[in-house]
Each structure stands twice: as C-alpha cells, then as structure tokens.
Design a binder for these strands. Structure first.
Length: 924
RNA sequence: GGCCCGGUGGCGGAAUGGUAGACGCAGCGGAUUCAAAAUCCGCCGAUGGCAACAUUGUGCGAGUUCAAGUCUCGCCCGGGCCACCA
C-alpha cells in the first residue's frame, strides 16, 4: 500500500471535525495554555503559501503542548472590517458583508485543507454585530473614563465630576488636553455645553479638532501607522494634513506604562525596539522664554538644557498659535507668504526633500533668560506643531538641523561644548566639556544637564519634563465598512447610547460613497437616528478597533452579557504565545496593549499585558521567473543568450517553470498571445533547455509568482506542505518561496511509510528494540524536544529525516520505536501520524497521546564522542562514557592505541580536558 | 542620519567556543528496468594528487583563546524598522 495522502488527509480532517477533537472547555484540573495567531483579513485573493507559515508553527506548538497535558486554547477568526471590501463594493455595488462572507468561506476551505487544530466553535468575525457590540461597549467605557495621574490609572468620569464640583480644575491631576484653569464655582456656572466641552478634554475617548492625515483618494482620515512616506499604506494615495473634528483615543496617557511594560515581555529585541521608538520617550526640560516688548512668553522643550548658552535664535512651527502674536507688521506679508507656501507643501513634499531649508523671520526677539541678550524668533517648517510645544530654542553649534538653518540664513552660532569643528558641521555628541557657558563652564555634558535643570527649577524658569512621541489615536473613519459609533448628538453635544441598546448595527445605504454634501457614507442611511430622533454619529471606527480585544473574546465567544466572563478570563488569563508578522509592531500591538491596560484599570481583565510571548514569523516573498522575447518577434531566448539580442523581459507564471527551466508547451498554452512562441534554448548539463531568469519580489498576482497552498496540498498533501514550510529555514527569517525542494520532504514521508507498510500490509514486530534502535530514536527525540522551545522547526524536520534514514538502514520495524516516533512526529504531520497511530491499534486521536511518558522514556546516550587533539590539531574521535570523570577521561585517552602512537618520544606539556567537548594535548 | 538583524558550497540552510558545510535541492556515477517513472547505493567547497592524503577555506582587517563561522574592536556589503521628535 503506497502512501495515499489524499485519502488519509480527508479521512482525518473529517474525523477531527465530526468528533470535535479540538474543542476546549475551561478545565481547572489541567494547566491552561493559550496559543494565538494574528487573525487574517479575508481578502478576495485567498491565502497564498506565505500566509500559513506562522499558523503551521503555532499549530505544531499547540499540538506539542496538548501532548504534554496542557488544556490549549487555539482559536481562529477573521478581521473582517476593512477598506478592500468597501473599495470593491464601490466598484461593483455588492454589499461588503456578502463579499466578505464569500472570502471567509474560501479562507476556511484553505485553512481546513492544511489540518490545523483550531477550536472553530470559538470563531469570531469582527464585522458580526454580536462581536462588535463589545467593540462599541469598550468605546463607551473609554468615553466614561479619564486618566488619573495620582492613581496612575483610568477612573470613572463620575469621580471626576465630583472632584470638579468640589475643587475645580486644580483638584484633579489628570492626563488631559489643554485646560484653562477654573474654580469650583466657575464649574457650577458652566452651562451643559461648556461642561461637556471641558469633559471632552479629560475623556479617554474624546472628540477634538485635530490635524489629521486626510486621504482624499480614500475619502477618509488615517492613523499615523496607516501612512507611509506621505502615502496611504492601502492603495498608495497621497495624504495631507487637515484640521477636522475627530474621535480620538487618549493612548498618550498610557505611554509610560506601554514603555515600562515591555520589560516584562518575552518579545524579540527588535520588536521591543520598534515599540520603544514609536513611543519615543525623551527626557529634558521645558524652558520659558519671554518675547521682548510684547506681553508674550512661551515654553520650549529641549533634551539639551546644557546648551542653552549656545541658543542664538528661536524657531516656531508654522502651525503654532504664537506666530500671530509675535509677527511684526513689517514682517507680516513675508510671514503670510511663507505660511501659505508651507500649507501647500504636503507632508509628502516635506519628506521628499528633508534637506531643503526654509523659514522666515517674525521680526520679534526673545530675551535670553540667562544672558539677557536679544535673540531673533523665526518660523521654520522643520519644527513640528504636534511635538513638544511647537517651539524650540535653536543651538546651531550642537544640532545639525539648527546648524543647517543658521548657515542658510546666516545666523551666528556659539560653541558651548568642546569638541568637533563647528566651521564644518555641528557637534551633536553628548560628550565634552562646557565652555562659553558662565556657571556651567568646565563641567561634563551630563553634569551640566543636571545642574542646568536644578538651576532652571530654582529660578522658576521652567520644569523638568518628559515627552513622548506617541500621539493619541484618531479613531474616526469617514467610511462605511466599520463599526458604527454608539454615539448620538443632542444640541451638538455627544452622548453615548445605553449599553442595553447595543449593538448599534450598521445601516443599509444605497451607495458606499460620501454624500453630495461631503458627509460619510452613513449620511445616506435612512433614519440614522436614535428612537428619540437624535442624529447618530456618521463616521465609523478604524480597522484596529475590532482587532484590539479579540483575544479576550475567544475566551468566551458566545457570552451575550459580557465581552468575557470573569471565570473564563481568570482561567485563560492571557496569551502565552502570539505568532504573527512584524508589520503590526507599531499598530495593532500598541493599540491592543493600550486597550487591554484600560480594561485592566477598570477591573475587567486580570492581566495588564495581553501577550506574554510573541514570535514574528518572517515574510515569505515571491520568487518570480522571467522570459526574454526578442523585440518585435515571437522568438524567446534563454537566459544565457539574452544579451546577444535586443530583448524585453516578461514575468512568466512560476507554476509552469521547474528549477528555472521553462515548460515550453505549457507556456504556449498559458496565454493565447504566446501560442506561436518559438524558443532559442541553451545547453545546460548536456540538455537543451529554456532557462528563465528570476528575482525575489513581493508575492502578487501581477508578477505571476503566487503559489497557492491548495495546489501544493493537491499535489503533495498537507503534511508535506507543513513539513516543507518549516524546513524552508528559520521561522523568523524572511525568505523567498521556492517549491524546488519539496520533493525531498515528500520522499521522506514516503520512506517513513515504506518502513512499516510492506506488500500492501502494515507490518510491525513486538520484538524489543535494540540499543542501536533506541539510540537512533532518542537522538531524534532529544533534538526535537529542544527545538520546540526555540521554534527551530527546520532542524527538527532534519532530525526526523536522519532518524528515518538510519532506521531504514537497519531495517527497523519494531512497534516500540514506531509508537514513540509517531507521537513525536504528530504535531508536524498530524494526518500521517493519526493514520499510523490507528494502524497500531489505538482508537483515540493521537492528539492526546501521553507524551510525558515518551519524554521520560528517552535515555541519554551512554557514551560520547570526544575529539582528541595534539598541539591544537584535531586528530581523532574517541568513545568515552558520558559520566566519566576528568581523570578517567585522561586515562582512557592516554591508554588508547592512537594516543600512544602520537605520544611516542614526546613529553606532555599540558593536557586540557573539557568534559563532553574536547581533550587537547600540547606536546613538547 | 539613528537603531536592529544578517553575510558559510551551484542553491535553501546546519554547527551549547571544540571534526565547518548536518539535512534537503540541484548535479554526477552506478544498481534495478526492454525503456522510463519510482526506488536504492555512492560521490559532491577550492587547489594539487590515480589514490591514501596534503594545502586552503565561513565578507575584509586586527585582537582574545590551546582552539573562533561563533567572542571583542574597526571596516565593507545586504536586509528591516524609524526618521526634521528638538
């Protein structure tokens, strides 16, 4: 009986589904383990061979944990709201819900074909009202909370209200917007509208006029992480800054905790680094500068208070409100012209030529707080309105950007730190002795920073300050296919719906485009009002809303009363292992942590950090193939000959290319335009072939380099696909997909099969296994078990191959060996293993076989190969007992024939014995 | 510009500081076969040699060590992330 993978795989997939083998329930008698995959967006293109890489790794890990007796939660679902479905709806008129459902069906078929052990009874879809009810619920909670800095956590707005009533704004220490101070009696005098506008400055989910990334091409605003190089990540449309009223989440309140929390996480250094950069903590001071002759003073933020004596001018961001106040009448026209020019320059232009220096003088001067000298106030677009205070002190001698500005406008500079040559470039390093700096002279930079901060503090010129780069998240999208906000407006004041009225379902619209008067698509919905006739919010939530707490919902997916019950949350706690792509480092993984910390603050979840360990699988790139056509002909020349002709390069479908050799008949049949193709072949290894060129590119339809998992499953089976994806290389590394090596892995499965299936029959003997057979098996067990913890599944697959090769050589068909090997192998090739497992007479799934028994039973080899060398040169290997002492090792080596031969007539100067590693003898 | 990761045969890639190139692909030679597929066996970094073997060899240059692909320092190259963040 040959290895019929199709029959076997269908059989076991049916079995798992029928018996609900992977369904889990909370079971306090077993330790829990939670393995999570980043759920996919179900796109119309279906899965390509790169998508399942992480899923396969997590499935292997899950199956191992299950074998070791853990109760493993391993769920899957879909991040189903999003732009592509909506864009498609605009073009075709088909409802996004419909196309999304189709795509989900297709995804499910593909996933099922690979034999994953998901508990599908816990599936979630973010576009399902039963699910997004809880996304809306969380938003209401955020609306009803503010961030209290004394308690260092979120607190209910009701508590804020009583504090304001009692003591006005000074009674509250909160992370909030810019609040003009008011007393308790002021508060009482405020009308409803004024009160709500004030509360908006405190709420964690709030409405604000903010500069947003407006994407006209998509007709919506985008979050910072949805914009790259001034273009939208989805669709590459230009993005510009625009002021709009938007819902925002006060993520910045959590910046310190998001940063500190990273320390306790088992994430890769590079990923932590990315988050650190994104949060962007910088410690410095805020200094107050007074404008000369005007009743204007303003703060600037600097990380280098030590260089204050080198400040020779000030720069304001073009967006700064101060611009108006300090511009003199003589400079007004120049300033206005400059402001107009910068407004026209989109973010994209600014990024395109960072080196371009531009700015304008305001006509006013500041008084230097220490020297009393007058220094000019400029406007420059290299200062950002959104960071710090939107104003800086410029120290051209020690900041390269200030330096470029000063050079361009011919502003003087003063060196205050020794080192470098400021006639050539600025000296930015935080090293050297202070000079030209009055009371700081002679100090080290680090000492000077400290001293200056103290000085500023005692003279009341400013305060020590920590800034974060992390911005509040804009949470409104002017789109259709997203969660509606549970918000209505009464006299222009936002109110939340009652939780009992959730979910607020997405209404039907006639078209998925904005309305004629520029309202979002929900403006087209009939009766988009509350029962009492108040208008509902028309924008929808962004993509990250639904993905921010999905891991909690999996714990208790059918609960209609809560996002997750206390019991379920206490049992599953947090995600032990999270596998997904590094592209979510600054988006999803920041928002999710924020969301979870907030739920933790309000006592809703038991863990502050959601993802204990995180592994990033590498991207699988496409490997494209090319053919070369002689211009103006139907003649195609092989790679090695293309330089002799004037050729054009074309992508060719990688599925009709084998080892870079083109299947010429398939090529003619591929597309009508190529049916008359002629080929000029070249000789490779004595054969005439058409050799294709290749390149590593993104996997995409237009490059004809997409390889579908179904094609591989049809041809080789799911187990081969699983093994091969793991065999390809280290999990975390990016690599191009190349189907070439898959035969080797498939051959290995056939070989293992053939060990026990002879002449149409499954044959094993009950004979006791020999020492040699045990050694072969145990070497494999040891290797695989150590690999599991480091996710080195590529070398595990190699270990299985070696094991099977060795067993084949000694013609082993012992039941004892096969039983253990199969259990060990089952996470990698589950269908294959189930088949053998049942052939061995077992009636239950191998998924719950007792692996601890297997682990205990494996013996460590009793001897070890010691390399023995003389004078530092390797000469031979010796078998020495593993538990031998240093003296015994020395004795065994010196008494061996080989050593005697080598040592004849020589004296031993030194002998180095490193147990389990080496014996090294230096002779004189 | 800053930070992170990597550089090993024709290719993908193995090597707790200890026989570099495991395992697989491709290639070559052989067995089986009327022939092919499938399967099995052997060879497979470079140079020299019929061979045993010798020399050399992990991007470049130094260093630590009895011993370096691995550790340290300085370069070169490639990839990723961030980037006018004061």
């Amino acid at each position: 009986m040959s290895y019929n993978f199709q029959e076997i795989e269908t059989k076991w997939q049916k079995y798992w589904s029928k018996n609900q083998t992977f369904k889990v329930t909370e079971d306090s008698s077993k330790p829990k383990f939670y393995v999570l995959d980043m759920f996919p967006y179900p796109s119309g293109a279906g899965l390509h061979v790169g998508h399942p890489l992480g899923y396969i790794a997590s499935d292997i890990y899950t199956r191992f944990k299950r074998l070791l007796g853990y109760n493993v939660l391993h769920p899957m679902g879909y991040d189903a709201f999003g732009l592509p479905a909506e864009q498609y709806a605009i073009q075709t008129g088909r409802h996004p819900a419909e196309t999304t459902a189709d795509n989900v069906t297709r995804y499910r078929e593909q996933l099922d074909g690979i034999g994953f052990s998901y508990d599908w009874s816990r599936e979630v879809q973010t576009c399902d009202p039963k699910y997004y009810k809880w996304t809306q619920w969380a938003f209401i909670q955020m609306f009803d909370h503010y961030y209290d800095l004394d308690a260092n956590k979120a607190k209910p707005i009701s508590e804020l209200l009583s504090k304001l009533e009692e003591g006005g704004s000074s009674a509250v220490n909160a992370h909030a917007g810019e609040i003009e101070e008011f007393s308790a009696s002021d508060w009482k005098s405020f009308d409803t509208k004024k009160r709500e506008m004030t509360l908006q400055l405190y709420r964690l989910a709030y409405l604000a006029d903010t500069a947003v990334n407006w994407c006209a091409g998509l007709g919506t605003v985008l979050a910072n992480d949805e914009v790259k190089d001034g273009l939208s990540v989805r669709g590459s449309h230009p993005v510009e800054q625009k002021k709009m009223q938007q819902w925002c989440l006060r993520v910045s309140a959590y910046a310190p905790r998001l940063l500190d929390g990273l320390d306790g996480l088992d994430w890769s250094d590079s990923l932590k680094e990315m988050q650190k950069n994104w949060i962007g903590k910088s410690v410095g001071a805020e200094l107050c500068f007074k404008a000369k002759g005007l009743d204007v003073e303003f703060d600037i933020f600097t990380t280098r208070p030590d260089t204050v004596f080198g400040a020779t001018f000030m720069v304001l961001a073009p967006e700064s409100e101060l611009v108006e106040l300090v511009t003199t009448s003589e400079q007004k026209s120049a300033v206005d012209a400059y402001l107009l020019e910068t407004k026209k320059r989109t973010e994209r232009d600014r990024l395109a030529d960072v080196k371009r220096v531009s700015g304008v003088f305001t006509g006013s001067y500041c008084i230097h707080p220490f020297t009393g000298k007058e220094i000019p106030i400029w406007i420059g677009d290299y200062v950002l309105g959104g960071y710090g205070t939107g104003a800086i002190m410029a120290v051209p001698a020690h900041d390269s950007r200030d330096y470029a500005f000063a050079k361009h406008f011919d502003i003087p500079m003063v060196q205050v730190v020794s080192g470098g040559d400021i006639s050539v470039e600025s000296y930015d390093a935080k090293e050297g002795k202070m000079m030209n700096s009055d009371f700081l002279d002679g100090l080290d930079v680090k000492e000077a920073i400290k001293k200056m901060v103290d000085e500023v503090d005692s003279r009341k010129l400013g305060i020590k300050k920590t800034n974060y780069r992390l911005r509040d998240a804009t949470f409104s999208r002017q789109r259709y296919w997203g969660e509606p906000f549970p918000i209505y407006f009464k006299d222009g004041i936002p109110h939340t719906l009652s939780v009992d009225d959730l979910p607020l379902e997405l209404p039907e619209v006639d078209k998925y485009l904005p309305t004629e008067d520029g309202q979002p698509p929900l403006g087209r919905a009939k009766n988009w009002k509350t029962k009492d006739g108040y208008p509902l919010e028309m924008s929808t939530m962004p993509g990250f809303a639904g993905s921010s707490a999905y891991y909690l919902r999996y714990m208790d997916p059918h609960n209609e009363k809560e996002l997750v019950s206390k019991d379920a949350n206490n049992y599953w706690q947090d995600v032990d292992l999270y596998i997904g792509g590094a592209e979510h480092a600054t988006g999803h993984l920041v928002y999710s942590r924020y969301w979870n910390k907030f739920l933790f603050d309000i006592g809703f979840v038991c863990k502050e950090e959601p993802f204990k360990k995180l592994v990033n699988q590498g991207m699988i790139q496409g490997r494209s193939n090319f053919v070369y056509r002689v211009k103006g002909t139907q003649k195609f020349v092989s790679l090695g000959l293309k330089d002799q002709h004037d050729t054009q390069e074309f992508h060719v479908d990688v599925n009709i290319v084998n080892n870079d050799c083109l299947d010429m008949e398939a090529f003619k049949a591929w597309r009508a335009e190529y049916q008359d193709a002629e080929f000029v072949t070249e000789e490779v290894d004595g054969k005439q072939v058409y050799k294709c060129g290749y390149a590593v590119e993104k996997m995409s339809k237009s490059m004809f380099n997409v390889v579908n998992p179904d094609t591989i499953v049809d041809k080789y089976g799911a187990d081969t696909l699983r093994l091969y994806e793991m065999f390809l290389g280290p999990l975390e590394q990016s690599k191009p997909w190349n189907t070439n090596g898959i035969e080797g892995v498939h051959r290995f499965l056939k070989k293992l099969w053939a060990l026990f299936y002879k002449e149409e029959e499954f044959i094993v003997t009950d004979e006791k296994a020999s020492k040699e057979e045990h050694k072969v098996l145990h070497t494999c067990i040891k290797k695989v078990l150590t690999d599991v913890d480091t996710f080195s599944f590529n070398t595990s697959v190699s270990a299985f191959m070696i094991c099977v090769n060795d067993l084949a050589k000694i013609k082993c068909n012992k039941k004892e060996i096969l039983e253990q090997l199969t259990v060990l192998f089952s996470p990698f090739a589950p269908h294959f293993s189930e088949e053998i497992w049942s052939a061995l007479g077992n009636t239950t799934s191998i998924s719950f076989a007792n692996a601890p028994k297997l682990v205990e039973s494996y013996l460590v080899e009793s001897t070890h190969k010691y390399p023995v060398s003389f004078n530092g040169k390797m000469r031979f290997l010796m078998d020495i007992a593993l538990d031998a002492s240093k003296d015994e090792i020395e004795k065994t080596v010196l008494e061996s024939e080989e050593a005697k031969k080598w040592l004849e007539g020589k004296t031993i100067k030194k002998m180095i014995v490193v147990p389990k590693k080496i014996v090294n003898i230096v002779v004189g």
